[in-house]
Design a protein around this nucleic acid. Structure first.
Lengths: 137, 137
DNA sequence: TTTAATTACTACTTTTTGGTAGAATTAAAA
DNA sequence: TTTTAATTCTACCAAAAAGTAGTAATTAAA
């Protein structure tokens, strides 16, 4: 009942990158230090974020990364989906084949409402939330 | 954002065992077949369930397993906790150290309410739910 | 007392996730 | 044109989770 490290890091990285204006180029080195993520693992995730079109990269000296879209348009759900961290709606929480109202696992009905709420929360929270209040990195 | 296979199996096994009256002894063989879980993996989980006092075992010929307590007293949360599938309340969803109102991750406030609802759902759902309606195994 | 049916134990293999190492590539600056 | 600071790629290593194999221990029935 928790997110993978990769998803967690991705959320923290992207929301941190929502702080500066869109011109600023974040370096892997800076990100790794301030977010306290191993440099090597971070660069792996950065590459994945580039492939997922969340960020764009400028290679070479003076290069770096910046968001590819306005922070207010990137939801937590977008990120989780990319890292397959939020299973789609046909798969139920007990994961015993697809659930439907006529053939449901014992938690099917109980899980429906919380699931909807979580999804909704993830879908309406964007990474620029960092600019509205004080958060730890 | 999902449960481990082991937790899922444990929930399915225990709720299946809530069907028959308390005298009946379930054999690993029967459980593995009806629940479609590999026999070897199932017996591993059964051993764990015995250690966790969820079930008791009768060894030897004509042996088997039965619930150790009334099905109506065993909650899904009990099971998840035993398999460490529900992290405790001090750890936040981004898992970046302990969160508190003065030092919180960006999802701290957003996650609070859904988390409470899920926990509540797990805490109030007992494995005898299978006896109130038709569910798949 | 032997046999068959059952759980329990120990150890291994496989798969997934998390993480690391090192070299290749790029492009600005010197 | 060389150096330097950055991303990218390929490959590996480690830890945890999932799953398998074989055998020992137990007990009732034959």
């Amino acid at each position: 009942m928790q997110l993978s490290n990769t998803s967690k890091y991705a959320i923290r990285i992207l929301s941190y990158m929502a702080r500066e204006d869109s011109e600023y180029l974040y370096k892997s080195n800076e990100l790794a230090k301030t977010l306290n993520i191993s440099y090597k693992f971070l660069t792996k995730i950065m590459t994945e974020l580039v492939k997922g079109k969340f960020i764009l990269s400028i290679r070479g000296r003076e290069g770096g990364f910046r968001l590819n879209n306005p922070a207010s348009s990137i939801t937590i759900l977008d990120i989780l989906k990319h890292f397959q961290a939020f299973t789609d709606f046909s798969t139920c929480i007990l994961g015993n084949g697809a659930c439907n109202p006529h053939n449901k696992c014992i938690l099917h009905d109980k899980w429906a409402s919380p699931r909807k709420d979580i999804r909704n929360m993830f879908a309406t929270t964007t990474i620029d939330i960092v600019n509205s209040e004080d958060f730890k990195l």
